[in-house]
Amino acid sequence: MSSPSSQSVKVPPSPSVEGAEGGTAGPGAEPARRPSAWRSRRYRWDTKFSPYAYVAPFFVFFVAFGLFPLLYTGWASLHQVELTAPTDMNWVGLRNFSRLMSDEFFWNALRNTVTIGILSTVPQLVIALGIAHLLHYKLRGSSFFRVAVLTPYATSVAAATLVFVLLFGRDYGMFNWALGMLGVDPVDWQNGTLTSQFAVSTIVIWRWTGYNALIYLAAMQAISPDLYESAELDGASRWQQFRHVTVPSLRPTILFTVVVSTIGATQLFGEPLLFSGSAGATGGSDHQFQTLGLYLYEQGWVNLHLGRASAIAWTMFLILVLIGLVNWLISRRLTKSEKGSRS
């Protein structure tokens, strides 16, 4: 930033050298001097503008597919507007937001999002940490195991969910069959509140644990072996090493995965949608596993109320901003306490 700006300030005082010449005489008027001046100018332009061109694709696409929809959704959320006539917008102010306060389906969806989020994120990260710890040992065929833990991440949500729907089936599902072998009565997974949320969380855990494990593994490999060595000399057991060396060193990484998983959990959509099969976006007969994303979809694309759906979308966005803020506060405190403990 600083170098282009200082150059740009230098240009105006000496316009007669290059600017005027180029403007009046035109290229080729002074063939002897021209090429080197032209080249140096091009070189300067290159260093000045190329970086912008390199970063431009992201920003252009972000504006077209991120910022514009975000702002337009915000505009739509202040209107009563239906998908059958999206240009017919009636200004309603903040009504779409204020009605969410008394919308029991919204609160139900928010509650479900939080509980499914906790049910899926916590075990997922704990298991990931454990798997990463195991993979960190010297293993035969370690790259095989590393690829293996990542395979669920590479499968599509749809395929994975369809299989889980079969596994969690009431009459002919495999889990109920296994429970039956143990003498437990069959569970109607989809109809219970907790059971259905557990089932949806299982799909999330299955898909994302390996991904987080690899992130943890990468961070673990960056921990200096000296720390373990000295801990061992001090007589620390494996478990104590894990608790007092590994976990503290992973703190920033854990925070990162918590944030990413929380964002993912807030936007959870595909798994609960497909878990109810072809039955639409209700999230079960009692809306027992309808997440915010699913409720947003139901309002927008089933009930065709774009304005109401936009208000839900913006509320979700604000929730995510809030989560981001909390994360920022925590990470600031973490780095402060780290500095404090070092000094």
Binding site: M1, S5, S8, F49, A53
Partner: peptide, 25 residues
């Protein structure tokens, strides 16, 4: 100075946007 820098950035961005915009369209 600051103003200059911002304006330049804006020009560069809009140029790039125009170039890429063509491709998007």
């Amino acid at each position: 100075m600051q103003i200059f820098a911002v304006r330049k950035t804006a020009i560069a961005l809009s140029t790039a946007a125009a170039l890429l915009g063509g491709a998007v369209l």
